[in-house]
Design a protein around this nucleic acid. Structure first.
Lengths: 142, 142
DNA sequence: CTTGAACCTCTAGCAGCTAGACATTTAGAA
DNA sequence: TTCTAAATGTCTAGCTGCTAGAGGTTCAAG
């Protein structure tokens, strides 16, 4: 039986985060000692590892909830899990495209900096002049 | 003189967002009509465009605050603006690297999906088995 | 039996908005 | 001039995914 602290160490998760996952129903309510402290078994280690791994792959918690649900019902179709993963891949690739565009413009900005005073700073100038901008749309969340 | 709504349209900013920027001191308190409605002039259009453009390039609001400050004082050195931009570029490149790693693993996951039921779903299996994972560290924020 | 580390709950905060409730103002048409 | 509908006003709460702190209790080792 593990304390919350050692579960955290095993899975690379902060204690607060584990309690948070419990609160939002991603982790089950564990057994408690008489004094009220949480105690975990192997199943919880696996579940939390799964969650953390998926988080590292950028899956949002809601997607992870679905994946866990699928994982709990081994007779359901694999297609759902597959499509969640594909969705996630699409998100990742979209974000990459945006970042590439940003990178280009940032490089251009910096490249043109001559190093005088801000009155003729290219960085500020580029930011001021929206017209040359190539990445107009909704790149903010990138 | 523009209403907050037309300022928003001109700059591609939601009304609520403009008020939010005012609240946190990024935008100045504008003049008001007798009835208390905000009215904006050209200076505000420029300032808000600057902010939005910088946001599209992924600059955090605090960095934008600094950039605006530099922009307001044309005699200061351009180096500060330049280093803010460089910092931002580094961030962007770091995020790109992470996303690339995620993309690789997601593709591998999906590629191996055979399409049965979830009992032998590769997607779930990969998530379950942390040991094959290449992107261990702090990829979460990517 | 004592100590000090680890645990408990609860609340608030981060970024950067977004959405809703509800009241007031404005601009144009009748 | 008066009506009306859209736009504005303030205020509060919510989103994601945690993180930090206050202030109190429990546990395990010595």
């Amino acid at each position: 039986m593990l304390t919350i602290g050692s579960l955290g160490k095993k899975t690379g998760t902060k204690v607060q985060t584990i309690r948070y996952y419990e609160q939002i129903g991603l982790m089950p309510e564990p057994g408690r000692t008489e004094g009220g402290q949480r105690r975990y078994g192997d199943a919880e280690v696996d579940r939390l590892s799964f969650i953390r791994h998926a988080r590292q792959l950028g899956f949002p918690l809601e997607a992870i909830r679905e994946l866990l649900d699928l994982s709990d019902n081994p007779d359901r179709s694999c297609h759902e899990a597959d499509s969640i993963a594909r969705r996630q891949l699409k998100q990742v690739e979209l974000r990459m495209d945006r970042l590439k565009a940003l990178q280009t413009e940032l490089k251009r900005m910096i490249h043109e900096c001559s190093g005088g005073n801000t009155a003729d700073c290219k960085v500020l100038e580029v930011l001021r002049d929206h017209s040359e901008c190539l990445t107009d749309h909704d790149a903010i969340g990138a």
